[in-house]
């Protein structure tokens, strides 16, 4: 499994993603500069990651300027040819601004930057990004964002839901983490329908606001649920050898 992590000016989770992937034994990982024309590896990456951070200082709108970066042509071609593309946090914002995913991320409805552990329910485990989860499993990933309110006009939202494109939904935590309740009531940021992550129709482009890479390394912060995310990709490419 060869991964390309795109580094934009202002990315700050690029190395976290690389480290998480390497820690799971899923290397190699190439770091690719946003102003490059193409990916470094000649064979091309299996997975391209747009990491979290504050590309271009969130100027204009989060992700808007990064979506016009030189490397995005290669990123788009990778996705168009069926390659896996993952956007985490700011990466998700970039994917919507590049119109590789529908909708947009608006400022949190409490106007605060939220940095906290949060619970999400895995709505689908038939994607390359989620195949190691149980369907309906509630896991804990940290969030850290100011613009994470997922918005899509009502008609488009119904279509998105009926096509099953919602992959992660904010869920109840604490004592109720096992109840499996999820939805808008549990959105820390006001996301419509409690949407935390979506996939494109084709099923190869995923964007999510929570950070699985921040709950991957053992003995770092509480929880390693993020490992299951990388395990999914590892199993998809048949390179998962981690036995815990």
């Amino acid at each position: 499994m060869r991964t390309a992590v795109v580094v934009f000016p202002g990315s700050n989770c690029d190395r976290d993603v690389a480290r998480a992937i390497l820690d799971c034994g899923l290397g190699p990982v190439d770091m690719v500069w946003h102003d490059d024309d193409d990916f470094k590896s000649h064979d091309g990456p299996d997975l391209v990651v747009l990491p979290g951070g504050f590309s271009y200082g969130d100027y204009l709108r989060s992700g808007a300027l990064a979506a016009k970066s030189r490397i995005m042509k290669a990123v788009r071609e990778h996705a168009d040819s069926g390659g896996l593309l993952l956007g985490i946090c700011n990466g998700f914002q970039i994917l919507t601004e590049a119109r590789l995913l529908p909708g947009t991320l608006m400022p949190n409805n409490n106007l605060r930057f939220i940095c906290a552990p949060c619970h999400v329910r895995v709505e689908r485990n038939d994607t390359p990004f989620t195949k190691a989860f149980k369907e309906g499993q509630v896991v804990q990933f940290p969030i850290a964002h100011h613009q994470g309110l997922y918005f899509l006009p009502p008609d488009d939202l119904s279509a998105l839901e009926s096509r099953g494109q919602v992959v992660f939904r904010y869920a109840a935590g604490g004592k109720c983490a096992d109840c499996g309740d999820a939805g808008e009531a549990y959105s820390p940021n006001g996301s419509v329908n409690g949407i935390a992550g979506i996939i494109n129709k084709r099923g190869n482009v995923l964007g999510l606001m929570p950070h699985p890479e921040r709950s991957t390394l053992k003995n770092l912060i509480r929880g390693t649920d993020g490992r299951i995310f990388w395990q999914s990709l590892g199993e998809y490419f048949d390179v998962w050898r981690d036995k815990g």
């Binding site: 204009l60 808007a64 300027l65 016009k68 601004e97 947009t104 608006m106 918005f151 006009p153």
Partner: peptide, 8 residues
């Protein structure tokens, strides 16, 4: 193309 997001 860039200055506004037509969705919102």
């Amino acid at each position: 193309d860039l200055l506004s997001n037509g969705l919102i």
